[in-house]
Design a protein around this nucleic acid. Structure first.
Length: 359
DNA sequence: ATTAGGG
DNA sequence: CCCTAAT
């Protein structure tokens, strides 16, 4: 599962020692998750292509609760083809260049890897069976070299960007402090229930730097009032100026509210787009294939059966179909068409004409 | 609660 | 993606 990313990003690596605590490994986590019914997979690992499971430490702030938490992570890469073992290897973490090349050099040339500024964009969906706390704990080591950092929250409260350079990550992440308090108000530290939340993160690391270890970086793009690329550019440039660079060895936690926009920004008050992600070829193909089999409509069912772990909502699916249909129907003008293969396009057109008949 | 359609 | 009317 890969997607073309237009923005060049830094290569980031996962600090296995933190993400993979003593007891559990990816497989264990996967097994546990499946047992818990969190996955609709058939028992294979990963449940779906490009999907990996990693254990997430329980929230230390959660009144001592040690409830297990899992994070479902889908990995997208514009450059690499992985298989399950690769993922596991990544998680268990080679930490030097040699290993990286060994891991990723198969399909692509190591040189390419090095020069490509690979981006690992991961989609995380946190499930907290009991505590509702989904937290990833990791080290945020000094990594001034961390060039471009990116990860994207699904959505966030519109908060001004912190102005301080070197602002501790935790502070940056806690940008919406007021909101946070409100939501937790009176709850004795217990957050509002949220069994599932998702967020997009990017792993950034400088594996080639000595002493450098992976860092988990949350992109603060979405803290900005979003309205177009200008804002994004501003953020990007701010990032270039080092505003978001991590500069301490502190351990930081991804705050609970991160990625939990469901409670923050559900209403229409928050007029931000919730999902600016472009559909990938795989997604479109998957959608078309599914529609071709089960027919157009029943979006909710479609969502649950074919896109259960995707960020796409049933409405997203519906809208996407409509757009695809529009794109490949009628006069083939100079439109910006998604690059779908012939087979896929054919299905779209067949479906479209079939629907016409039924009108 | 979902869906179809327009915006 | 959002919103709304209709179901």
């Amino acid at each position: 599962m890969h997607t073309v990313t237009l923005e060049a990003l830094a290569f980031i690596f996962l600090p296995s020692r933190v993400l993979l605590p003593s007891t559990a490994g990816p497989r264990a986590a996967a097994a546990a998750a499946m047992e818990a019914g969190a996955s609709s997979g058939t028992g294979s690992f990963p449940a779906e292509d490009g999907e990996i499971w990693v254990p997430v430490l329980s929230d230390p702030l959660d009144g001592g609760s040690n409830s297990p938490t899992q994070a479902e992570i889908e990995v997208y890469s514009a450059y690499l083809d992985y298989d399950a073992m690769d993922f596991q290897a990544v998680l268990e973490g080679p930490q030097d260049e040699h290993d990286i090349e060994k891991l990723f050099g198969g399909a692509r040339s190591p040189t390419y890897i090095k020069e490509a500024n690979l981006t690992h964009e991961i989609e995380c969906e946190f499930y907290s069976p009991t505590s509702d706390h989904g937290m990833i704990q990791t080290l945020a080591p000094a990594s001034p070299e961390t060039k471009e950092i990116r990860g994207r929250r699904r959505s966030a409260p519109a908060t001004a960007l912190p102005e301080k350079e070197e602002a501790p990550v935790t502070m940056a992440l806690g940008g919406g402090g007021e909101e946070d308090k409100k939501r937790k108000g009176g709850g004795k530290g217990h957050p509002l229930p949220c069994h599932r939340r998702s967020m997009r993160l990017a792993l950034a690391a400088t594996p080639l730097e000595e002493g450098a270890c992976a860092t988990f970086i949350v992109d603060l793009l979405d803290y900005m009032p979003k309205s177009g690329w200008r804002h994004r550019s501003r953020v990007r440039s701010a990032r270039k100026r080092g505003i978001w660079s991590l500069n301490t060895e502190q351990t930081f936690l991804l705050p609970n509210h991160l990625g939990d926009m469901s409670s923050t920004c559900k209403g229409k008050k928050c007029g931000h787009r919730k999902n600016n992600d472009h559909w990938t070829y795989e997604e479109m193909k998957k959608l078309v294939d599914a529609l071709y089999i089960s027919g157009v409509g029943n979006w909710t069912k479609l969502k649950h059966e074919n896109f259960s772990r995707s960020v796409r909502t049933s409405m997203n699916l519906k809208d996407k179909w409509r757009n695809l249909k529009k794109a490949y129907t009628g006069n083939a003008k100079k439109r910006i068409l998604p690059t779908l293969d012939k087979d896929c396009v054919e299905k779209i057109q067949k479906l479209a004409s079939k629907m016409k008949l039924h009108l």
